[in-house]
């Protein structure tokens, strides 16, 4: 356990003209912590995620990230080259739709290997061996390594996307509805896999989801957003078992019991 957070977010706001994307969001994220951001569509959670992952520039506020050398860097003052480098080495981004995060027309092996090649790996045999290893870790058979993701099921594609993101050993992974659009049984398998990987690798993650069960299973901490603002935050089980804000109570009471 380090005494310093990995990411410090302070008064982050994003406005689309006069419309609010997210408003005055602040939090710290420590290594190995999984933070769930929940809220219904339009609550600003995806805007927040995109700002944090520097895919979008905020209107105001700061976010600083502790680099591997231990120094904090202000994300929005980095050059685009530095940000993109961070994005493909120390960070991961798991999209809801795997097609947004994969190259659908190159093989599974190349999808996993791309990040390695991007950071200068030039040994085909080693790249392939690493790809095989990662495919097995996300439960994809080795004999599918030369198949294109187009030939994969939704769940497999999502697992491939995860492998592609984790191959460089990132410390922070952003996930946007990682189980959205999957069958319940496929969802459970993916969640379990994610949970195991996050624990084993000590990843920090920010998971945007509207599914409280996903938040309960994956995260230790939770932020509830409504109309761009954080209405409640705290330990995930505390927020879900003792929701205090009116909106959180509404969300929790809306869960269907099986």
């Amino acid at each position: 356990m380090t005494d310093e957070p990995l990411l410090r977010v302070s008064a982050l706001s994003k406005f689309y003209g006069s419309r609010v994307g997210c408003d005055n969001v602040s939090f710290d994220l420590w290594p190995g912590e999984v933070l769930a951001v929940v809220g219904e569509s339009g609550s600003g959670k995806t805007t927040l995620l995109n700002c944090l992952s520097t895919r979008l520039l905020p209107s105001s506020g700061t976010a600083s990230y502790r680099m591997r050398d231990g120094q904090f860097r202000e994300l929005y003052r980095m050059s685009e080259a530095e940000r993109r480098f961070l994005m493909r080495t120390d960070w991961g981004f798991v999209h809801q739709n795997p097609a947004d995060g994969l190259r659908m027309t190159v093989s599974a092996g190349a999808n996993v290997g791309e990040r390695l090649m991007a950071v200068g790996d030039r040994h085909y045999g080693k790249i392939r061996a690493t790809a095989v290893d990662w495919l097995s870790r996300v439960e994809i058979e080795e004999d599918r390594i030369d198949d294109e993701p187009r030939a994969f099921s939704g769940g497999m594609r999502q697992r491939l996307q995860i492998a592609r993101n984790l191959v460089t050993g990132p410390r922070l992974v952003f996930m946007d509805e990682p189980t959205g659009g999957l069958d319940v049984s496929v969802q459970a398998r993916l969640l379990d896999l994610l949970r195991g990987l996050v624990t084993d690798l000590g990843l920090a993650a920010i998971v945007v989801t509207h599914d409280l069960a996903v938040a309960r299973l994956l995260s230790q901490r939770m932020m509830v957003m409504k109309d761009g603002r954080v209405v409640e935050s705290g330990l995930t089980d505390r927020v879900l078992d003792d929701p205090r804000a009116p909106y959180t109570q509404l969300l929790v009471s809306s869960i269907l019991q099986v």
Binding site: E80, R84, R103, V106, A118
Partner: peptide, 29 residues
């Protein structure tokens, strides 16, 4: 491998050429 001109120009600008080796990787695979 990358159909967007905006993206390929950025890749050249930032010297992000991992993708080029993806093509060669696919060949060998």
């Amino acid at each position: 491998l990358e159909p967007r001109e905006t993206e390929t120009r950025k890749m050249h600008a930032l010297e992000e050429y991992g993708l080029m080796h993806v093509k060669l990787y696919e060949d060998i695979a």
